[in-house]
Each structure stands twice: as structure tokens, then as C-alpha cells.
Design a protein around this nucleic acid. Structure first.
Length: 598
RNA sequence: GGCCUGUUGGUUCAGUUGGUUAGAACGCCGCCCUGUCACGGCGGAGGUCACGAGUUCGAGUCUCGUACAGGUCGCCA
């Protein structure tokens, strides 16, 4: 039976009772975390978002009726207690903020009873995700989830206050916009008024924020929901939140400066970490060469080394044939793993194959100094010596070598490096290595589309000194783009935008857009640029990933209140679901499902 | 779409070379208990071992398929 809270007003959250004077009367409300019934004395741990507070029910204080009511309290009952703040009669509980206090209950109302929850509401729950997500509203009661969600709210507040002080304006952009097939798959929304036409949900407010610069707003920020209809990952959800910004009359230095100070501020105010600014910077080429990744985790070494020159004339054709333009032979030295068994090595080879390698060569230098090498019979001893020398390997080390197209070699060794680094515990969770990765390639060749695609987006400014190569060697042109990387995660990225007609036109040409198609898709932006466009630049963060780092979450789901699972469905609400025939008819939509194979 | 992993009372797990009645902890229910805080004591309920097929005298255990979940490659301008 539920009682009303009429006449009662909550005076404190549970943990806030430490601020109430001793022997004062308080009214607290929350969920019963635990009850300990000692017969003539009942303890209840009351929980709300602030923490836990012990309530003590004694028949002498609360009376017979109240005491009997207290004995019916079960897990997750919602109760209101009026009582006196007193020092604990027994031992203090050093694990609780309120551990020296308790509330001597004078009256009790049971505001809501609860069925036994499907899993225990407790910190560090081991309950499987499936169940947690089905009962997300219960999962969110757990203290670690509460901390994450509260932290995210705090980060958003810090961003807003910092950026407001820096002169940024928060401006909303449409959620219903025009579909642009470049890039990620759009979520489409059918139009009722225009049968057969569709809106798209934004993948990012990119075009609108550039238009806002054209309109003279100067400095824009938005905490913007974004949608991408692509497959999920541990750090990827189909809907997520960006901290999106754009600035006029600036260059790279201005954007980096304000963002370094923003991140320093956030990390200080949330977890008290002093981030050193300015951040290190690393050109994309260097990041790939040294770490095999455009988002390197620089907390540990195990860097890649190019050994192409050492093996270009060797007898092992897998190596020698890979020494051409665009291909190479590279290696990492996994220190201390020289004594791995055959099975473990085979596992690494399989791992490498998952990233497109045909195989993985290895050279083990066992602790006793003997060598075991998968390609020894093709090599002279002095050639092996040269490799060991280049890799600075010593007894007990393991050299892993990949050969082939640069992109594959980087992918394979970059992934192996991270895998081994994780396994060997080389990543200090308390270290925050921020890094700007700069000078990205402007274009990326797509085998699928058989044309160059914009690596960032088609409005990214090329580097002036490379622009001359745009016709002769488009792949070598670098962009004025920058990513902000933290411990191997891409937190955000941005670029200087093109604001010159002729460069923009050339970009579309290189990307294979006809004038008509460019105009059809981006006409409103190109039109706007005809009426006076300020030089501008911007950046967008993945807010969820940022918060993941701040709270040390392994999954992006742990920082989103109502996330979706791997197949993009919501286990709690059942979305997506079928809709009424009537709704479809209004939208002039017929569903044509592929026939199921038997 | 590919690959890997998992699915056993409400929850988390154990379950040997395939063998007789599938165990534990927590939770839940009842009784006792005035200083507990992972309260304690006594007693109890609760499982077609995800689903389907197969191998076998016999399957929680082996094989195949399906479903669901997790990770990952492709994908994510």
C-alpha cells in the first residue's frame, strides 16, 4: 500500500544530512537499500543519488504501529522518514560519508512498495548487460551508473560555462535536415506532406555551423545529438552527443588554444587532474610510422620501425617483394615476450590475419640467447643481426614483422602493439596523454567507389604548400585538419574550412562531383559563400567518449542513460518496432521485406 | 555480412574422461534476536541446464543449426 507524502517536505538528500545539526529534525526520502532486522531494532540503509544514510527504527521512539510498519520494509521500497540526526550508538562506518550519523526515526511513510528487483541494486554489478539494459531504470539506480550520469551532466555544465566565458554562443541547429549520402549512412525520416521525400537526422551539424559563421555569429557551440546508421562498437552508439564548435577569423593556433584550456579546465574540475598545456602535436605521417595509428596511445613505447631497407635484397620474397612504393616491411619489438610458446605465437598470427595480414613473421630471441625465427632459412645471419640491431632487441624479446601495403602493415602492427600493451599492463590508467594529430591526408582512395573521398569532409582546407600536387598526386596533399587524441582514443576532430570558391570547386572536381551534384547537395552552403564568408574553423568532440575517459568506463553504454545494443535496438522499449498500417499510409510508405530463406 | 566468446534457480558462478538425486554464494520466504552496517542463528522454497535437431545404452557436458548478448573486422566523410 502506498502512502501520500502530503504534509511532508524533504529537507535533505541522504548524504547531505552531514550538514544538519545534531539532534535537529530532518525529513529524508529514498529507496531502502538494505534492512537489518535485529528483532527489537531495525536498521535501514536509505539510498538516493547522494549516497546512503542509516535509519534506525526503535519501538520506543517510533511507537508500536510505526515499528511494525518498519518491519515490512523490503529492498527498493520508497520511504519517507522524519527523525532526529543523532550520533551512532554503535561503531561508526568509515565506508560511508554519513558513517558517524544515523536518523532516529520518529515517523515512517511507505511511499511505494517494490517487487524484488530482477538483480541486486549494488555497485560493480556483474549482472549481464542484457538484463541491465532491459531494466535500465533499475540499473541506473546503481551508484556507479549514477556517478557516470551525474559526471556527464557536470561536464556539460562545465563546457557551457567555460565556452560562454570565451564568448561562444549556444545555437541550436535542425534535427530534421537534408540527407547527404557522403559519409555515414543517414537515419531517414519520411515526410508526410511531401510523399516520397525524406528528412535525415544529422550526422553532425557541420553545414549549419558553417552557415552560422556566414551569418556572423563568430563563435558557436552546441551540445548536439548526432545520428549515424552504422554498426555499433564498445565506443560507438547510433545516437551520440557532440560538443560542436565553430569559430570565425581564426587559424589552427586559436582553435587548439581554446580547446586545450577547455580540456584542462574540465579535467581539473571533474577529477582534479592537472593536464599540461599546450598538448604535444604529431603529424599524421609520424603517428602512422611510429604507432601504426592515427590515434596513438603514447603512454607506452613498442614503436614501429621500418626495416624495408634491411630486407629489400634478402632471400625471403614476402619481404623483398614488399619493398615498393606504398608497401613496406615494418616491425615491433615486444620486450620480454621472447619465450612465448608456439601456441601463443600462433594466436598472434591469427590476430594479425584479422587485420588483413596474410601472415606474421616473428623473430624470437630466447632468454638464453638462442633465436627462433619463422623465416630463418631465407636469411643470412648478418641480416637477422641487422634487424635485431635496428629493433634494439635483447635476449628475451620478440620481434613481430608485417610486410605488405603500408595501410595494412600499420593496421596490423598498430593493433598488435595495443593488444600486447594491454596484455602486459603498459597503459597507466592514471596518465592522460593528450595529443594533437595534424596534417592528415586530405583525400583517401576508395577501392569501393573507385575515386578519392574526403578523409575529413569536403570542406576541409588543404595545406597551401601541397595544393600544387592536387592534379598530379592527390593522395599526397595534406589537410589543415587536426584530431584531439587521448590515450589512444579519438576524442574529437576538426579543421580549417575552405572559404574560397576556386579551392572548393576544385575539391568537388577531385571528389568526382559534377557542378550540378555539388550544387544539389550543398547548394545552400555554396550560395551562402557567395555573400561574404569569414575564414573559419571548428572542432567537434565525442562527449560520450570524453566522459568515458573521465569515469574510466569500458563501454560507451555506461555513460549514456538509455543506450542501444549491438543491433541498434533498445532492449527496454523494444525500439525499433513496427507501426500501424494507418501511419504508413499517411506517409505513402509500403514495406517491401526481402523474403526469408527457409 | 565475416570471425571470436558466452547462455546452468531471481543474480553471479562451479559442474571432472559423457554416468545415477545438477551444487555454492548472494537474493527471496518464515521463525528467533536491542547496535547492526556484507548483521547473526535456525528452517524453507526455487532449475524442462537458452531453443531445436543429432551422436550415444545414457548429454548440462560431444556435433550441427537457431535465437539472444558481448567483443571485433568490414563500415563509421
Amino acid at each position: 500500500m502506498s502512502e501520500s507524502m502530503r504534509g511532508l517536505k524533504r529537507t535533505h538528500r541522504c548524504a547531505e544530512v552531514v550538514d544538519a545539526p545534531l539532534n535537529s529534525e530532518v525529513t529524508v526520502m529514498g529507496w531502502a537499500q538494505r534492512r537489518r532486522n535485529l528483532g527489537a531494532l531495525i536498521f535501514v540503509d536509505l539510498r538516493d543519488r547522494s549516497g546512503l544514510l542509516q535509519i534506525v527504527f526503535d519501538e520506543n521512539t517510533i511507537g508500536k504501529e510505526g515499528f511494525e510498519k518498519a518491519s515490512t520494509i523490503r529492498s527498493e521500497y520508497v520511504i519517507a522518514v522524519v527523525g532526529k540526526v543523532v550520533k551512532r550508538g554503535g561503531a561508526v562506518n568509515p565506508n560511508l560519508k554519513t558513517g558517524e550519523l544515523e536518523i532516529a526515526a520518529e515517523s515512517l511513510r511507505i511511499l511505494s512498495e517494490s517487487e524484488t528487483p530482477p538483480f541486486q541494486i549494488e555497485e560493480n554489478s556483474q549482472t549481464r548487460d542484457e538484463l541491465r539494459l532491459k531494466y535500465r531504470y533499475l540499473d541506473l539506480r546503481r551508484p556507479d551508473m549514477q556517478r557516470n550520469i551525474i559526471m556527464k551532466s557536470k561536464v556539460m555544465g562545465l563546457v557551457r560555462s567555460f565556452m560562454a566565458k570565451e564568448g561562444f554562443l549556444e545555437i541550436e541547429t535542425p534535427m530534421l535536415m537534408k540527407s547527404t549520402p557522403e559519409g555515414a549512412r543517414d537515419y531517414l525520416v519520411p515526410s508526410r506532406i511531401h510523399p516520397g521525400s525524406f528528412y535525415a537526422l544529422p550526422q553532425s551539424p557541420q553545414l549549419y555551423k558553417q552557415l552560422l559563421m556566414c551569418s556572423g555569429f563568430d563563435r558557436y557551440i552546441q551540445i548536439a545529438r548526432c545520428f549515424r546508421d552504422e554498426d555499433l562498437r564498445a565506443d560507438r552508439q547510433p545516437e551520440f552527443t557532440q560538443i560542436d564548435m565553430e569559430l570565425s577569423f581564426v587559424d589552427e593556433e586559436d582553435v587548439m588554444d581554446v580547446n586545450e584550456r577547455l580540456l584542462k579546465y574540465i579535467f581539473k574540475e571533474t577529477i582534479g587532474v592537472d593536464v599540461q598545456i599546450p598538448f604535444k602535436r604529431m603529424p599524421w605521417q609520424e603517428a602512422m610510422d611510429r604507432f601504426g595509428s592515427d590515434k596513438p596511445d603514447t603512454r607506452f613505447g613498442m614503436e614501429l620501425h621500418d626495416i624495408s631497407d634491411l630486407v629489400k635484397d634478402c632471400g625471403f620474397s614476402v619481404f623483398s617483394s614488399a619493398v615498393t612504393k606504398g608497401s613496406s616491411v615494418r616491425a615491433i619489438n615486444v620486450e620480454g615476450k621472447g619465450d612465448l610458446g608456439r601456441k601463443q605465437i600462433d594466436k598472434l598470427v591469427e590476430f594479425a590475419k584479422g587485420y588483413g595480414a596474410k601472415g606474421l613473421a616473428y623473430l624470437q630471441i630466447k632468454s638464453d640467447g638462442t633465436r627462433k625465427c619463422s623465416f630463418a632459412k631465407f636469411m643470412k645471419d648478418e641480416e637477422l643481426d641487422a634487424i635485431i640491431d635496428r629493433m634494439e632487441a635483447k635476449p628475451g624479446d620478440l620481434i613481430l614483422i608485417a610486410a605488405g601495403k603500408n595501410k595494412m602493415v600499420w593496421d596490423v602492427l598498430g593493433a598488435l602493439r595495443l593488444e600486447m600493451g594491454k596484455e602486459m599492463g603498459l597503459m597507466d590508467p592514471d596518465q592522460y596523454n593528450f595529443l594533437w594529430v595534424t596534417e592528415f591526408p586530405l583525400l583517401e582512395w576508395s577501392d569501393e567507389e573507385n575515386r578519392y573521398m574526403a578523409m575529413h569532409h569536403p570542406f576541409t582546407m588543404p595545406m597551401e604548400e601541397d595544393w600544387g600536387m592536387i592534379d598530379t598526386d592527390p593522395g599526397a596533399v595534406r589537410a589543415r585538419a587536426y584530431d584531439i587524441v587521448l590515450n589512444g582514443t579519438e576524442l574529437g576532430g576538426g579543421s580549417i574550412r575552405i572559404h574560397q570558391d576556386d579551392i572548393q570547386e576544385k575539391m568537388f572536381e577531385v571528389l568526382g562531383f559534377t557542378k550540378e551534384r555539388a550544387h544539389e547537395q550543398f547548394g545552400f552552403l555554396l550560395d551562402a559563400f557567395r555573400y561574404g564568408v569569414p575564414p573559419h574553423a571548428g572542432l567537434a568532440y565525442g562527449l560520450d567518449r570524453l566522459v568515458m575517459h573521465i569515469v574510466h568506463a569500458d563501454s560507451i553504454r555506461d555513460v549514456i542513460a538509455f543506450p542501444k545494443v549491438k543491433d541498434a535496438s533498445d532492449l527496454m522499449s523494444g525500439a525499433p518496432g513496427e507501426v500501424d498500417e494507418k501511419q504508413l499510409k499517411e506517409l505513402s510508405i509500403k514495406v517491401d521485406l526481402p523474403e526469408k530463406e527457409e
